[in-house]
């Protein structure tokens, strides 16, 4: 794609996670964003980049929306008004998975989190491949207490495989599976669940 896809802007952030506000669920390029497990990037001060995985998408409600639902609203214009125009933003939580500078990737926490209103971009396939070339980020996700780690890993690994040419996808998943086997040697049930989800 020519233009990077903007997911939204930062509402609040910390070293280990940040929250984005999005105007709607479909981007201008007609992509479904934000998606669970997607890899996104933000500026983290200077030339630094912050990479993260989307682990929660919340669509909030208020009394007005509840009343419309209770009344059984059917008007498509009212439904689109609620979805696209009312200030009930789509709130997206992102788990920080690594940092970078230029083409360099570091699977460690960034020095600084993204700033308020920083734009967040969906990573391209090339960025996804570069980020997932090494498996060190798996440890960060497995150790997360705020994200649904197992499901997040499954979604992110499937995305990482899909970003690669078809003839490389199976090899990538097998390699990731071997790394997970090392990390979860004492949690075989958990490992089994993740591996099944990766198929």
């Amino acid at each position: 794609m020519d233009q990077p896809t903007i997911v939204g802007r930062v509402l609040r952030s910390s070293t280990t996670s940040f929250t984005i506000g999005c105007r709607q669920l479909i981007s201008e390029q007609d992509q479904r964003i934000p998606e669970f497990g997607a890899l996104v990037r933000a500026a983290g001060g200077g030339d630094n980049l912050v990479y993260g995985l989307i682990y929660n998408v919340t669509i909030e409600d208020d009394a007005f929306v509840r009343q419309l639902v209770a009344a059984g609203v059917e008007s498509p214009e009212i439904i689109e008004d609620q979805r696209q125009k009312r200030q009930v933003p789509v709130v997206v939580d992102v788990l920080v998975a690594g940092s970078g500078r230029g083409l360099e990737i570091y699977h460690r926490l960034p020095a600084q989190p993204p700033s308020t209103l920083d734009q967040i971009y969906l990573c391209t396939a090339a960025e996804m491949v570069r980020f997932t070339e090494r498996h060190d980020w798996l440890r960060t996700v497995l150790g997360s207490v705020e994200a649904p780690a197992d499901q997040l890993l499954i979604a992110a690994l499937r995305n990482a495989a899909h970003a690669r040419p078809p003839d490389q996808r199976d090899a990538y998943l097998i390699s990731a599976g071997r790394e997970l086997a090392k990390l979860l040697a004492l949690e075989l049930t958990r490992l089994d669940g993740i591996l099944r989800g990766m198929r």
Binding site: P76, E77, E80, D81, R83, Q84, K85
Partner: peptide, 8 residues
């Protein structure tokens, strides 16, 4: 714009 399906 009623009948268009679009957001106002």
């Amino acid at each position: 714009r009623a009948g268009t399906g679009g957001a106002p």
